[in-house]
């Protein structure tokens, strides 16, 4: 089965990002499955902030997702409109909006909702975590 994941729950106010990673790990552990891509939307875009600093003895879900994605070559898309609204910018967007700082973490990429449409069309199943 070829999956994509849509994650909309906040990384601090819900378990969505954590449950989704559990699912993704279990999915790829079974050699019959692939994951086409991960799309973070609504409050889940906060996962991509490089400035979030959870205590060192707690799970850093941002880094766990990026390590998993790198290992399995899975893109981590962050909705650009939802991200800008919530203060997640990459260098190009910071320049475009004429602000000094940007904070998109390594391994994540800002993309339009068209990427979610593509994932919907290219995957057998979309799993939603909210």
């Amino acid at each position: 089965m070829n999956y994509s994941l849509l994650i909309t729950g906040s990384p601090t106010a819900s378990r969505a990002c954590y449950s989704a990673l559990d699912f993704a790990e279990a999915a790829v552990a079974n050699g019959d499955n692939t994951i086409q891509g991960i799309f973070f939307y609504e409050e889940a875009v906060a996962i991509a902030s490089s400035l979030a600093m959870p205590p060192r003895d707690e799970c850093n879900i941002r880094d766990e997702w990026s390590a998993f994605a790198k290992q399995h070559n899975i893109p981590l898309y962050v909705c650009i409109a939802a991200a800008l609204r919530r203060g997640q910018l990459n260098e190009a967007e910071a320049k475009r909006h004429e602000v000094e700082h940007f904070n998109l973490a390594d391994g994540y990429q800002l993309e339009g909702l068209g990427s979610l449409v593509s994932l919907t069309l290219e995957s057998d199943r979309i799993m939603r975590f909210k």
Partner: peptide
């Protein structure tokens, strides 16, 4: 919340992609 706004945005993008 902004949930409905973001839902309608998604609907419009599906429409834009002729889905």
């Amino acid at each position: 919340s902004s949930s409905l706004k973001e839902a309608l945005d998604l609907a419009l993008v599906f429409g834009t992609f002729e889905q």
